[in-house]
Design a protein around this nucleic acid. Structure first.
Lengths: 236, 236
DNA sequence: CAGGTACTGGAACGGCGTTCCACTCTGGAC
DNA sequence: GTCCAGAGTGGAACGCCGTTCCAGTACCTG
C-alpha cells in the first residue's frame, strides 16, 4: 500500500527539525523542563541522541525553537473577525500569550531567559510586531511608537511570567480547585509576614484570595492602555 | 593575636549560609550562571562540595538565596531623603531593580524562574511592598491597591528582564561602546526582517539605535503611573 | 551497479548535582 | 583533666546529563 516507488519510508518518517521541536514541546508539557533530555527525546523519536544533533545545534537551540514555536502559535491566533478596536486587539494578543504561559508552564522562565540572552531572536519581534500594529492603529504618534509598544510588551511578559505557576499538573477538572488552593496558600503566606516590615502586603493579602488571574491581567492591560492614551494620544 | 581562648578559628572562618551565598553571588557575577558549580564554590571557600550541603539544601535554594540577597539590597537602597513625591519613590525602587539586573546579568532570568516556580518566596513580597506603599501614598483607593501595585511590578520585572543582556563582560570603560554596538546589532537585525511580515518592527528599528535604556525604562514607568492616575485616582 | 552523500544511532567522555561517610573539632559533664 | 556526643567538614563515589565521535545504513546520481 502507498506508493512504494516514491517514498519507501526509511523507518517510518524521516527525522526533521519540525518533528524534533514538536516532540520537545510535548516533553516539556508532560514532564517539565528537567524532563527534557536528549536521551528521552531520542527514545520518544525512536532514535539515538546523536541523530538529533544533525538537525539541532544543541539544547539552547532546541529550547529556543520550542519557545518560538509556541509563541508564534500564540500571537498569530487571530480567531474571529478583527472588527474590534485596536485596544481589543491588544487584549487579544495579550491574552493569547497569557494563555500560552498557562498551557505551557515552562514558557515563562524560558521566555525571560531567551529574551535576555538572545535579544536578536525571533521571539521579541513577533510579539513586538503584533502589539505595535495596534499601537499605531490607536493613533499614537510615530515618535512614541517604540515607548508605547515596549511598555505593553514588558507588562505582558512580566505579568505572564508571574502567573504561570498556577496550573499544577494537568488535572482536567480540578483546575479551579488547584487555583484556589494555590491562591489560598499565597494569601496565607503573605498574612504571616512580619507586620513591621510588610504592612502593605499584609493589608492586600486577602484580595489575593479568590481573585481571577485573567481578569487581573486584563485590568493591568487596561491600565497601561490608559497611560498610553493619556500621554501619547494627541487629540486629548 | 586575637582572643585565642574564645575563637581558635577552626580553619579561618566557619562556613555559614551567609558566606556561601556571598560567594555564590560573586561567582555568578564573574563567571556567569553556568560557572556556578558546587565544585567551584567549594574551591573558592576552601572546602569540599559535601560541606556546603550541610548549610544549603541544594542548587535551587542556593540560587533562590542569591537572588533574594541581591533583590533585598536593591529595593532597600533608600539613599537620599524620601522628600520626593510617591511617584518619584516608585521610580527610585524601579531604578534600583533595573540597575541590579544590569549589575548582575544572571538576575533577570533567575527572577522570572524564581517567581514563577516559587511564588511563595520572599522576593515577590519584597518588591510588592516597596511599590505598594507608594501606591497607597498616591491616594489610590484600597480596592485598587492590588491591581495598581501588580501592574507596576509586572512592568518593572518585564522591562528589567528585557534589558539585562547589554552589559557584556565587565569592561570598566568600554561599557557604552558595548551598549551602542549591541543596540546597533539589534537594530540591524530588525531592519533585515521580512517587510511583509514585520512592517511595524522595521519602521521603529532605527529608534532602537542610540536610545537610552534607562530613559526608556523610566518612560514606561511614567506611562504606567499615568494609567494609575487616570483610572484609579478618585479626585482625578 | 558503483560511489557519494545525507542521515542515523549506539558508545563513550567529561562534568555536573548530589549522596555518603570517615573524620575533626568543640563545648559541656563529671 | 578526661571523655564523649554531636555539629560540622571534605573527599570519594554515583548516576545522569549534554555533547562528540564514528562506523554503519539508506537513498540519490550517473
Amino acid at each position: 500500500m502507498a506508493t512504494r516507488s516514491r517514498r519507501p519510508e526509511r523507518r517510518q518518517e524521516p527525522l526533521s527539525r519540525e518533528r524534533i521541536v514538536g516532540a520537545a514541546v510535548e516533553l516539556l508539557d508532560t514532564v517539565g523542563e528537567r524532563g527534557l533530555t536528549f536521551r528521552a527525546l531520542a527514545e520518544r523519536l525512536s532514535t539515538g541522541p546523536g541523530a538529533i544533533y544533525w538537525h539541532i545545534t544543541g539544547k539552547a537551540e532546541l529550547l529556543a525553537a520550542a519557545t518560538d514555536a509556541v509563541v508564534a502559535a500564540a500571537v498569530s491566533a487571530d480567531p474571529t473577525g478583527t472588527t474590534g478596536s485596536p485596544e481589543d486587539a491588544v487584549r487579544a494578543v495579550a491574552l493569547g500569550l497569557f494563555d500560552a504561559t498557562e498551557a505551557h508552564p515552562w514558557l515563562a522562565p524560558q521566555l525571560a531567559t531567551q529574551l535576555s540572552r538572545t535579544p536578536g531572536g525571533t521571539v521579541a519581534p513577533r510579539i513586538f510586531e503584533s502589539l505595535g500594529r495596534q499601537v499605531r492603529a490607536m493613533g499614537v504618534p510615530e515618535a512614541d511608537w517604540f515607548t508605547a509598544s515596549s511598555a505593553l510588551m514588558h507588562y505582558i511578559l512580566g505579568a505572564a511570567g508571574q502567573n504561570a505557576a498556577n496550573s499544577a499538573s494537568a488535572g482536567p477538572s480540578g483546575r479551579d480547585v488547584d487555583r484556589d488552593e494555590f491562591l489560598d496558600t499565597v494569601s496565607t503566606a503573605w498574612e504571616g509576614l512580619d507586620p513591621a516590615e510588610y504592612p502593605f502586603t499584609r493589608a492586600v493579602a486577602d484580595q489575593v484570595r479568590g481573585h481571577d488571574d485573567r481578569e487581573q491581567f486584563l485590568a493591568g492591560i487596561t491600565l497601561v492602555l490608559a497611560g498610553i492614551t493619556a500621554l501619547h494620544r494627541p487629540g486629548r
